[in-house]
Nucleic acid binder design. Structure first.
Lengths: 242, 242
DNA sequence: CGAGTACTTGAGCGTTATCAATGCATGTGG
DNA sequence: CCACATGCATTGATAACGCTCAAGTACTCG
């Protein structure tokens, strides 16, 4: 067809455009947009790179921007006044950060290792969503997905034992790692043991011990301190208890 | 003005209409609609009454309907395969039940005491939302609010002690009870001690003991087994630790 | 290669769970 | 109207799981 071969039609989303090779495109909120709309959307914001350990925003800061992860992993955490920490979650490539209607951030977001993301001013972002109902629905889907995740974590924190929490966590990470090595599911754990502990409502020492227990039970095999292979997926799932 | 005095304009939302005296109207999702739209909205669904203990829906059931609470309290809970229970939350008048995109319910919903609610087939409800963007935004707000609540509960379950959980819970219930007796905030606890325990990730005995502790510390005074007065709101807030 | 940080392992303890008994309402039948 | 059953709440005694404190090991990075 003539239109598809038209130079302008081709150039609407050309190689060289920052979104062209974006590995997160299919998972991110931009998946609700066609190539033409993505170009317009991208113009609303900018790319931002974070060095390992760098903070994107602080708990309680004015929520002036929203973000869409493209590379790396963020740790989303919150402190009690006396310093006890809880890690609310981790943001992976494709994850949207900023599902809220409040005008302050609900958590501190820090990069684990180097990371990159797209950053959009909230006002412009919200105006864009107003004009693009599919994006609105995609955002509602993101909120609903976060809610599902939060509920499963409520069950984990409220009722599961340390071993069960550890098993559930490894399965969750294996799912997100979403790669297989020699047929066996691999899980990458880019965060520190401390982060895992604060995510699971345990102490570092307990995380270490439970991980050792899983190794001893031959359910997993460590291939590095931040990477393991699930050698017995069924056994691990049975231990995870849901 | 002429139009406001017009008989038809008056009759659009008359006494006698089921929504006319609805005590939840201002808080519920219907608050996104004008009187005219509420009448149309109401026609999509029906009223449903639940006897004490009756189940509205089961965890895993096909999610064919969504609900809006008008009277009473629901307990939203989920079981692990081995029977351990977690109470995900309680639905009070004005609360919307059914923020999700999944086709199965995420929890079992049971009435604590008698309850009543409006019930809408999901397909019709979603079509209506499609036609009424304000309702869509109100629904997104409901999802965002649930997310805020879930996050605060993650911190509670992951990092707080039994005493802190109990204090936080009483403050939450006092907020929702939203009434004062002789200047002192009152909290009604319509649910059983077992429900409270499963909500806070504790055992019944611990709930009983911690409640006794709060009484002994003169932070609260019981006026009945399901009702108390917060005699020292600041002290209780300090104990709640956030 | 050395210093610092992160992780692991060990020993003992404390908070909360578990098990058991009792108290206290509410309802039912004799 | 009382005896009894039933269900929920409270209280007590003991145990266990995960925490705390402490030491030791293995990375990482200048």
């Amino acid at each position: 067809m003539y239109l598809l071969d038209h130079p302008q039609a081709e150039s609407r989303f050309a190689p060289g455009h920052p979104c062209y090779e974006c590995p997160a495109r299919a998972q991110a909120v931009c998946s609700a947009l066609d190539d033409h709309q993505v170009v317009a959307f991208r113009r609303l914001g900018c790319t931002r790179e974070l060095a390992a350990g760098e903070t994107l925003c602080w708990d309680g800061d004015a929520a002036t921007h929203v973000y869409s992860m493209t590379h790396g992993v963020l740790r989303l955490s919150k402190l009690l006044p006396d310093g006890r920490r809880h890690v609310m979650g981790f943001a992976f490539p494709g994850d949207f950060v900023g599902v809220t209607l409040e005008d302050r951030h609900a958590f501190t977001a820090e990069a684990i290792g180097d990371a990159a993301l797209c950053q959009f001013p909230r006002s412009r972002f919200e105006a864009f969503v107003e004009q693009h109902p599919r994006m609105g629905r995609r955002l509602y889907a993101a909120a609903a997905a976060e809610l599902v995740a939060a509920r499963s974590r409520l069950m984990l924190l409220g009722r599961k034992t340390a071993a069960e929490r550890m098993a559930s966590f490894i399965l969750e990470m294996a799912r997100r790692t979403a790669q297989a090595v020699a047929g066996e599911p691999r899980a990458s754990l880019p965060m520190s043991r401390m982060d895992i502990a604060d995510y699971l409502g345990l102490r570092v020492e307990t995380v270490s011990r439970e991980l050792a227990g899983l190794k001893a039970a031959r359910l997993v095999r460590m291939t590095g301190i931040h990477e393991l292979i699930v050698t017995d997926p069924d056994g691990l799932a049975a231990l995870a208890a849901d």
